[in-house]
Amino acid sequence: MLSNRWTIGQLKLAFHLYCRLSFGQLHQGNPEVVELAGLIGRTPSAVAMKLCNFASLDPAIVASGRKGLAGASRLDRQVWELFQADWEGLAVECAQLRQALRAEHGLPPEEADEAAELPEDFTGATRQVLIEQRIKQQFFRRAVLGSYAGRCCMSGLSEPGLLIASHIVPWWQDPANRLNPANGLCLSALHDRAFDQGLLSLDDDYRILLAEPLRRNADPFVCQVLQPLAGRPIRLPERFRPEARFLAWHRRHVFVDSGVGDSAAVSSGEFV
């Protein structure tokens, strides 16, 4: 008899999907749930239940008053911890697992796989590096936008073409957390630029901090669109809530009014 136990590979793929969907999409009718079920030989309802098991382990889900599905296994918890320890490695591994399973089932590569769009003169190691970079970028974007239900957390904008998965601590500054969704904010292109330039930041209570150059700017657009943001709380994500240590780093090292609202200490060796 075949064991009905979930394998570590199946659980990794399930958690990979959990990261990319919003909380309201964790159901058996979701086409992506149905697709994964077919790839790993399980029913859509079984996959949906496993996604809800992962939700029960998510501190942000629990803090919001919602509940996942009780009964998460020791292996479920192990997979959760594996991702927390190596977001980049697991994102690439899961993308490769999915492509291998699709090939086994006679399915074409996923549309999200942009490898075919790379110029033909990119070959060998260079091509592989570029493919992996795109896999990582796509994972981070899906995870962050999914966490915020596809809306800018400051303005509420929901047009996908104008939304950016913005890093709190820049990707080059902290390699271990490049793909950690808790190091991301869903922002419009405008708010992303202002955040990146240190004109906007967040305090420990997720209230928006406005730097002095914007506070004293008399431009009508700034007065109408940006200045009213001061002191407002952001729209919190459904999961992967921004970590205080990342916000403290941004206030200290990026925010123009450095130190304002910085109540969380960052150890000197945290981010080099």
Score class of each variant (00 low, 15 high):
Asn217Val: 05
Gln173Val: 15
Phe246Arg: 11
Trp172Leu: 11
His167Val: 13
Val222Lys: 02
Phe139Asn: 11
Leu162Ala: 15
Gln197Asp: 01
Glu243Gln: 15
Pro213Lys: 05
Leu118Cys: 08
Pro233Lys: 12
Glu238Thr: 10
Phe246Trp: 13
Glu243Asn: 09
Arg235Asp: 09
Ile168Pro: 10
Leu247Cys: 07
Val222Arg: 00
Ala116Tyr: 07
Arg134Gly: 08
Ser155Gln: 05
Pro220Asn: 04
Gly161Arg: 04
Lys136Gly: 04
Ala112His: 02
Gln197Ser: 11
Phe240Arg: 02
Val225Thr: 05
Gln137Asp: 15
Ile131Pro: 01
Leu199Thr: 12
Glu132Asp: 14
Gly150Val: 08
Arg134Ile: 08
Phe221Gly: 07
Met154Glu: 01
Arg141Glu: 13
Leu163Glu: 04
Leu214Val: 15
Arg215Gly: 01
Gly124Ala: 14
Asp219Glu: 13
Ile135Val: 14
Arg235Gly: 12
Pro213Phe: 02
Asn180Gln: 04
Ala115Asp: 10
Glu120His: 12
Tyr148Leu: 09
Ala112Tyr: 02
Ser201Asn: 02
Glu110Ile: 03
Ser201Cys: 02
Ala149Ser: 06
Val144His: 06
Val225Ser: 11
Pro181Gly: 12
Glu114His: 01
Val129Tyr: 00
Ala182Leu: 15
Phe122Ser: 06
Gln138Gly: 13
Cys223Pro: 02
His167Tyr: 04
Pro119Trp: 07
Leu179Asn: 07
Pro160Ile: 11
Ala244Trp: 03
Gln227Ala: 03
Gly124Thr: 13
Ile234Lys: 01
Arg215Tyr: 00
Leu145Asn: 10
Asn217Arg: 05
Ile208Trp: 00
Gly231Leu: 06
Asn180Cys: 12
Trp172Ala: 07
Ala143Asp: 12
Ser147Met: 03
Cys152Ile: 10
Ala230Arg: 09
Asn183Cys: 09
Arg151Leu: 03
Tyr148Ser: 04
Phe122Asp: 08
Ala116Thr: 08
Phe140Ser: 04
Glu110Val: 02
Trp171Glu: 12
Gly184Phe: 04
Pro175His: 09
Leu145Gln: 12
Ile234Asn: 01
Gly156Ser: 13
Glu238Ala: 14
Pro160Asp: 11
Arg241Lys: 11
Gly146Glu: 10
Arg141Gly: 06
Asn217Gln: 08
Ala189Met: 09
Ala112Arg: 01
Ile135Pro: 01
Phe221Lys: 06
Glu117Trp: 03
Gln133Asn: 13
Val169Trp: 01
Asp196Phe: 10
Asp121Val: 14
Ala125Arg: 12
Asp196Val: 14
Asn180Gly: 04
Gln197Arg: 13
Glu132Lys: 00
Leu247Phe: 01
Arg151Gln: 08
Ser158Leu: 05
Leu214Lys: 02
Arg207Met: 01
Ile168Glu: 03
Gly150Met: 10
Arg232Lys: 07
Pro237Tyr: 09
